[in-house]
Design a protein around this nucleic acid. Structure first.
Lengths: 343, 343
DNA sequence: CGCTAACATGTTAGCGCTACCATCTTTCTA
DNA sequence: TAGAAAGATGGTAGCGCTAACATGTTAGCG
């Protein structure tokens, strides 16, 4: 008679065992299986054992997508950095990863390539994944991006630099770091100091360091010439930077590079040119990468605690996720001047 | 009276606009909105415009979790590497990221810390996220992990090395690379050659290179002594490695290091000790990192195309995801001997 | 022994989206 | 001009899980 079973729709989804099947196998209800796996302390010990046994027997793998939909939150942490080519961000990511992974959170990594529109796009995507928190390198965002984040009620952590943050903030004062190195170079008796940066519009934190550098020099009545390279930090670019200083500022006695890659490239290049460092030309960097500490003469640089910054940032976010009070929304991780033999 | 409206359940979920609300605002059905956003070519142009307008007006952000659940697949690519401390993996990741991101896939990064159980755990988690594919560094997996992957019907790509793979495989022949460098050192006239590795049980690909190295030396009737350091590659460890060779093998004339970090650390250390490279001791590395190419003498090493390997791997996977035929399941990306002045 | 609190488990109703099938309209072909 | 083919849109029914509420069961107390 007519349509008692009108062409049973083809089943969708995978043929993996589901929580329901585990429940049947263990002789309990689905919610009990859910609890046994997610909040074991709320389930009787024997029941839990039976559930675990069924899980293993069936080879059950929880569908985290379904869980996230139902609970309206995933254990994802969105992490947005401008580049994966720069060791600095990698180290911060490592600190974040280590700390978050230990607490069962999974990092969703996004790379903006120094493009704020790309960042906006990534934020949109990540919001769509119901992330538990967002960590982003830097304080600069597009208006569209700020609009999205304005309506968001989960923790937002901005790392690398300090300033007016949306929510949480862990970083260091780049302007002060620039001042610090400029003072050091002045203290060494240098008066003709060139700053060499690379793409300061994109790497604007290096621009902030230059601002601090210039501030100190100008306060002393000195000029603060700037050479800007068109490639981001690399040993090659540093060598090119040295050449441009030698060509453009024959009287230069010291070069303050925006980072250690550039500085080390210049230092090695100086040796190939037969220049004595620091007698003929003094060289300083920023970051404190191992590389600069293993050349002779050892590079004078500023050490920033990058992995620790990542860890601290993650801890702050975790505290917020645990509904614990966060003592300070802004934390300065500081930096250390490391005086080598290159200045 | 009784229960005409028995305490309406509190609404769950966020208060973000949903696809349904966009549909109402645009005067179409939800499924049309879904199509307008995901398969625009299947929707009339005018309708699409109205939908887009509504999306922007409401600030709608698609819930990707719900979409993944309904379609039983996310646009996630699981990527599992043993370490984030090693530049080699970072570069592969960069190649993968670039290629996948351009096609709208999001990378889920997992770090095993060279622990196969941890890998198994990560695979479990990633399967739970309905990833579209899995990329893993290396061919070694625990039995439990193989069990999970055996039932999985999505592309699996194993990178870094070549061998008996589960599915797709892009990499290079490390044993042959070891042979290649050993032949080069023999060709330079060296007869007393020490191999220095670091944690060869974990970095087993370096172990494979050593195997190739030994094979060549022994075929020539030479000894192939091995020194194994207990720290993974770093400049410091390389310096320590040089000291151990000088102490343990006073007659050594050449050192074949497992990687460039070690080799460069040793090279710089040799200079500090006043040793001439290659006259007193020849030094060779592996990887072709920029670092080794900027020291004097330039490091002899083997260049592996890491970023290209990532890109190629991603392209193969994408082809599979697009249901296009994959010409070869296994692809050798090769390597290049770069002869510097350090040998 | 009745009452309450704490524990253990179950029932119900979605989370927000897309696969599947059905329907309706328009265009093209014989 | 009927009929098929292609295009556009909609209705229905879940995807697999968990929040909220409900119920049952045991322990503790005077």
């Amino acid at each position: 008679m007519s349509n008692s079973n009108p062409s049973p729709r083809r089943r969708r989804g995978s043929d993996q065992p589901t929580l329901k099947q585990v429940a049947d196998a263990a002789g309990v209800s689905p919610i009990t299986v859910s609890r046994a796996l997610n909040t074991p302390e709320r389930v009787n010990e024997d029941t839990r054992a039976r559930v675990i046994e069924a899980v293993e027997r069936l080879g059950y793998v929880p569908n985290l997508v379904a869980g996230s939909l139902a609970s309206a939150s995933s254990r994802f942490i969105a992490v947005i950095v401008p580049s994966l080519a720069n060791a600095v961000f990698i180290e911060v990511i490592r600190g974040l990863q280590e700390t978050f992974e230990a607490r069962g959170y999974q990092i969703l990594l996004g790379n903006t390539d120094y493009d704020l529109d790309r960042e906006h796009q990534l934020v949109r995507t990540f919001l769509g994944w119901s992330c538990s928190a967002l960590v982003t390198a830097g304080l600069r965002h597009s208006d569209a991006c700020l609009g999205l984040l304005g309506h968001w009620d989960k923790p937002i952590m901005e790392v690398m630099e300090l300033g007016e943050a949306l929510d949480l903030n862990v970083g260091l004062d780049h302007r002060e770091a620039g001042r610090c190195m400029a003072r050091h170079l002045l203290g060494r008796g240098h008066r003709s100091i060139v700053y060499v940066g690379a793409c300061l519009d994109r790497d604007y934190r290096a621009g902030m360091r230059f601002a601090g550098h210039r501030e100190v020099l100008e306060a002393t009545g000195l000029d603060a010439p700037l050479i800007e390279l068109d490639r981001l930090g690399s040993l090659e670019a540093g060598a090119a930077g040295l050449d441009r200083v030698l060509g453009g500022f024959p009287g230069a006695r010291a070069i303050h590079f925006a980072n250690d890659d550039l500085a080390t490239g210049a230092l090695l290049h100086a040796q190939r040119l037969g220049l004595r460092v620091p007698e003929d030309i003094a060289i300083a960097g920023f970051n404190g990468l191992p590389l600069g500490q293993h050349v002779t003469p050892r590079l004078t640089t500023i050490q920033s605690p990058r992995e620790a910054m990542g860890r601290l940032a993650a801890e702050q976010v975790l505290r917020r996720l645990d509904h614990q009070p966060v003592a300070q929304r802004q934390q300065d991780v500081g930096f250390t001047l490391m005086v080598g033999q290159s200045t």
